[in-house]
Design a binder for these strands. Structure first.
Lengths: 102, 102
DNA sequence: ATTACATGCAGTAAAATTACTACATATAGA
DNA sequence: TCTATATGTAGTAATTTTACTGCATGTAAT
């Protein structure tokens, strides 16, 4: 895994707003920007501007965690977490001390 | 795991310089600030000021990934990655799509 | 065609990050 | 005690991040 890719993934995860968005997308497929905004208010009580949510989605997308498809004037965002992503995010596990096998 | 703790861990990991420091600490126990600086130059070819490396170590320490002990005028930094840390860093794995069991 | 809707893009301001330099403090050794 | 060593702290500058507002573009519906 490239250093830049690790940067993108960890930076995407290093913000609680983005983690909430990811959590929402995990429970709802193919969400539009407006649906994510609405959920942010309804579920998390956080009122963010549409443009701000769009920026967060862009960061998550650049990390490769989201797949998007256009349907008419609506852009659908779907979470697509692969083995590669979880392996990267688990980078730290490489450095865990080995437990003594009892 | 608290949101703030996830922030600290992911932010600590979201910088390639800090990841290199963590990697170095994984191979060398109880490193002083100067030893980390020297390794940064020798192993990675990156010449950073002592104060900059100190800041990075502080970020890693605040994330709880390092244990420090003073010996005279030397501060020894030791990597201490626990189950809690790897579980937090693997946060993303909770959202991976289930593979169809063949 | 006109209006409403969904999103993109540009610009801005406050805050955080990342590097630096300079000075201060505390310990070890001559 | 005096000096060198190891680190801490403060302040600064450039860059990035995170929020915002306003305007533009493209699609759907009346």
């Amino acid at each position: 895994m490239q250093d830049e890719q690790l940067d993108l993934i960890f930076k995407a995860l290093a913000d609680s707003t983005r983690r909430r968005i990811i959590d929402h997308l995990s429970r709802h497929e193919a969400q539009s920007l407006f649906e994510v905004c609405a959920a942010s208010v309804a579920e998390d009580g956080v009122a963010l501007s549409r443009q701000t949510v769009s920026q967060h989605l862009s960061v998550i997308e650049k990390a490769g965690l989201i797949e998007t498809t256009w349907k008419g004037r609506t852009k659908a965002h779907s979470l697509r977490i692969t083995e590669d992503h979880t392996a990267a995010a688990s980078w730290l596990a490489n450095y865990k001390e080995k437990e003594p096998t009892i």
